[in-house]
Each structure stands twice: as structure tokens, then as C-alpha cells.
Simulated scan of single mutants.
Amino acid sequence: MKLHWSPRSPYVRKVMIVLKETGLEPRVELSRNVVALHMPTPQAVLADNPLGKIPVLITDAGKPIYDSRVICEYLDGLAGGGFFPADNALRMEHLTWQSLGDGLTDILLLWRTELARPAGAWEAVTDAWRIKIRAGMRQLEADAPRLSALPLGIGQVSVICALGQLDFRWTDCNWRRHFPALAAFHAQMLERPSVRDTVPDDDNAGDNVADITAGHLWFDQ
């Protein structure tokens, strides 16, 4: 298999954690790509995903699968299951956390691009995003005991990747001080090699977006 990959992508990180946890990583060749909203999409990515996004997994049969949610479920099936529980109530719990984690990540990625616009960010939009990020983090703080208690599944993986994006691109937001239960959950997850070894890394394959997020995301208000 082949994976269109970047060490900075939180969605690629989701896939990499699942690959490592399932033991499937040795079967996958990584293909480095730089993908950003403001840049032309690499033809190699566009050929396999008409949306021009990563991750994209090319199966052993040569079929492209895109979107981290779909890829992770495919890999889970190859490995015999576990990340997407068979019990319907537990599965819905994990899928809801996945939706929340991915939704927070979506906002953080779009927000960073919005701040880089030459004309300046649209404050009405960024103000709305700030409200949603704070609400999402409060929900995760309330859910943290449950996240910590359950065996690792796609819900925890998605939340880990959202928190990792905060650490990677919003370094002064100090989220741990405001959400101690969530911080404890994150520390617990970092004890796993799959999580620790996939912490986002800026490998200098530049996307030409400066680190301009400092001071734009605060939980004090």
C-alpha cells in the first residue's frame, strides 16, 4: 500500500496512529506531499483524490481511498477490528468524538489560513470559530474521564490529533491550564509509542504560511 503523507497533517497523523497500533505500518510506503488551500495541488495527489487532499491510501489492489475517516475504518477492517466498536452505543460514542475532534481540527486549519490573508482575517468568522473551539474544548473536558477509561479507539485518536494541532500551531494558547482533565488524558495517550512518535513535525517542506497564530486563540475569556 502507499500513503500520500505529511508529518504535519493532523489527518495523516490519525492514519499513522491506526497503522502503528494495528501493526500494518510496515505494509505502507509513505509518499511525502505538501498540500495547502492556497497552493496548487500536487498532481500525484490530484490523480488519486479529485479533492486534492491528504491523506490518500492506495490499496494493494491499486484503489485509492481518501478521507482519514474512511482510511482508518478500512485499516481497522484489515486488522480485524477494534477501533470502531461493534457495540452500537459504544460505536456512536466513538464516532461522535471523531466528529468533534475532526471538526475542531478543521477550524484550526482554516483559521490559520484565514489569518494569513493579505487583506487580514474576517473577524466575524474568526470570532465565531473562537466560540466553537472553546465550546468544543469544554465538551472534551467533560468527556475526558470517559476518554481515559475506554480502550483506544477512533474517538480518542481524533481528539489526540486535534489537541496535537493546538500544540503544533497555537503554542501560546495554554489549553492545559484551562482543561486539566483533558491535559491528563493527553498525557496518558502520549505514553503510547504510536501517539508519541507521530507528534507533528515541521520538516521544512514549506507551505508558505507563516507562524502567525500566536495570541489569536485564548481560553481566558
Rank of each mutant, 00 (worst) to 15 (best):
M1I: 00
K2G: 05
H4I: 07
S6V: 02
P10D: 04
V12A: 11
V12T: 12
V12F: 06
R13D: 07
R13F: 04
K14I: 10
M16V: 06
I17F: 04
L19S: 03
K20T: 01
E21W: 04
T22A: 09
G23W: 06
P26G: 05
R27V: 03
V28A: 05
E29A: 12
L30M: 13
L30T: 09
S31D: 15
N33D: 09
A36K: 04
H38N: 13
H38A: 13
P40N: 13
T41P: 05
P42E: 00
A44M: 08
V45W: 07
L46S: 06
A47Q: 10
D48K: 10
D48Q: 10
G52E: 01
I54E: 02
P55D: 05
V56M: 08
T59Q: 02
D60P: 00
A61V: 03
P64M: 00
P64R: 00
I71C: 06
C72T: 15
L78T: 02
G80H: 07
G82H: 05
F83C: 03
F84D: 05
P85V: 11
A86Q: 06
D87A: 14
L90P: 00
R91P: 01
M92H: 11
E93W: 15
T96H: 14
W97T: 08
S99H: 09
D102Q: 09
L104V: 12
L104E: 07
T105E: 05
D106F: 01
I107D: 01
R112Y: 00
T113R: 01
E114I: 05
E114F: 02
E114R: 07
A119S: 11
G120T: 02
G120S: 08
A121W: 06
A121I: 03
W122T: 02
A124H: 04
V125A: 14
V125P: 03
T126P: 01
A128M: 13
W129D: 08
I131V: 15
K132D: 12
I133V: 15
R134D: 08
G136F: 07
G136M: 10
M137Y: 09
R138N: 15
Q139R: 15
E141Y: 14
A142N: 11
D143K: 13
D143W: 13
A144W: 13
S148W: 10
A149P: 12
L150I: 05
L152R: 04
L152W: 02
G153H: 00
I154F: 02
I154E: 04
S158R: 09
I160V: 14
Q165R: 03
Q165Y: 10
R169D: 01
W170R: 06
T171V: 15
T171I: 13
R176D: 04
R177T: 15
H178V: 03
H178W: 09
A181N: 15
L182I: 12
L182G: 10
A183G: 12
A184V: 15
A184Y: 11
F185C: 15
A187C: 11
P193W: 11
P193S: 13
P193E: 12
P193L: 11
P193C: 13
R196F: 10
R196P: 13
P200F: 02
D201C: 11
D202K: 13
A205F: 10
G206M: 10
N208Y: 14
A210C: 09
T213I: 09
T213D: 07
A214P: 03
H216I: 00
L217E: 06
W218K: 12
W218L: 12
Q221E: 14
